[in-house]
Amino acid sequence: MASASSTAIERTEPSVKPGRWNLQTVGGLAALTEAAIYVAGIAYFLIILDYANVTAPRQQVELFVANQTSLYAVSLLIYVVFGIVLIALVLALHDRLRSGSPSLMQAATAFGLIWAGLVIASGMIANIGTATIVDLYATDPSQATTTWLAINPVVEGLGGGNEVVGGIWTLLVSVAALRAGMLHRALNYFGVIVGMAGILSAIPALGEIGGGIFGLTQIVWFVGLGIVLLQTSRRKMK
């Protein structure tokens, strides 16, 4: 009986070590940071740059040239920093859920790390590409526009225009949490919806709608996830 009770505890409790900082605390802060980065990126592109209303490639290039410094900083934030912080969150969730649903969490963690790598790569390409476009624009605006048309699909394909990998990760994490009876049931069901929206963004006809829904709803999911992970960490430190 003692052995059975010990096994049950191992399946339902994350490995939280004593001390102010532990993997669950880091994971909770990482989730909240991801939400904040999402909001910052949306505010920059939609409000400051008004990028949604700049549709002509030549105008987009001119916008980049006029905002090179801020664009570089924001791209670094929403892609590279986002990806690095995502790794911490992926590992925290793996630690939290692996005992309750080991097979699903192995798959989820693999997709999470792949997504982080794709997002980081996308940001690096975006920044190098933007610098190249700005340099070309000074001597040949037409060539700069042509280069942008070649670079943009790569950036979008890796980290923005198609959210299928992030959607699969979110879906698998949510299903694993539901099966294990961990995190919060409402948050897990919401995560299933978020993940499905990301996966649907792979369908060309639903790409913009699915990607938009995925981005907006994942902000809410990240906030809820951060709160749950931080609450878990605090309870275990008492």
Score class of each variant (00 low, 15 high):
Gly195Lys: 07
Leu89Trp: 02
Gln218Leu: 08
Ala52His: 10
Ile128Tyr: 10
Ala30Asn: 11
Asn152Met: 11
Gly181Thr: 12
Leu206Met: 12
Val26Met: 10
Val85Pro: 06
Val85Gly: 05
Asp135Trp: 00
Ser99Asp: 10
Asn162Lys: 06
Ala144Thr: 04
Ala150Met: 13
Asn152Tyr: 05
Gly210Lys: 08
Gly27Tyr: 02
Thr12Met: 11
Thr217Phe: 14
Pro18Glu: 07
Val65Ile: 04
Asp95His: 11
Met196Lys: 00
Ile219Cys: 08
Gly181Asp: 09
Gln59His: 13
Ile227Lys: 07
Gly19Ile: 08
Ile168Met: 07
Tyr44Cys: 09
Ala121Asn: 01
Arg234Ser: 12
Gly226Val: 04
Phe82Lys: 10
Asn127Gln: 14
Leu172Ala: 12
Leu63Lys: 12
Thr132Met: 10
Glu13His: 11
Pro18Met: 04
Ile193Trp: 14
Phe45Tyr: 14
Ile168Val: 15
Ile151Gln: 05
Val220Arg: 03
Leu230Asn: 09
Val165Glu: 09
Leu63Glu: 03
Leu32Cys: 12
Trp169Ala: 12
Phe45Arg: 02
Leu104Phe: 13
Leu46Gln: 13
Leu225His: 02
Leu29Ser: 04
Gln59Arg: 11
Leu136Phe: 10
Ala92Ile: 07
Val173Ile: 15
Ile42Arg: 03
Gln218Cys: 03
Ala205Arg: 12
His184Tyr: 00
Val175Thr: 11
Leu113Glu: 06
Ala4Lys: 13
Thr69Lys: 06
Asn162Pro: 04
Ile199Arg: 13
Val65Tyr: 04
Gly41Val: 07
Phe45Leu: 13
Ile48Ala: 11
Pro14Cys: 07
Ala43Trp: 12
Ala110Met: 06
Ala121Arg: 02
Val228Pro: 01
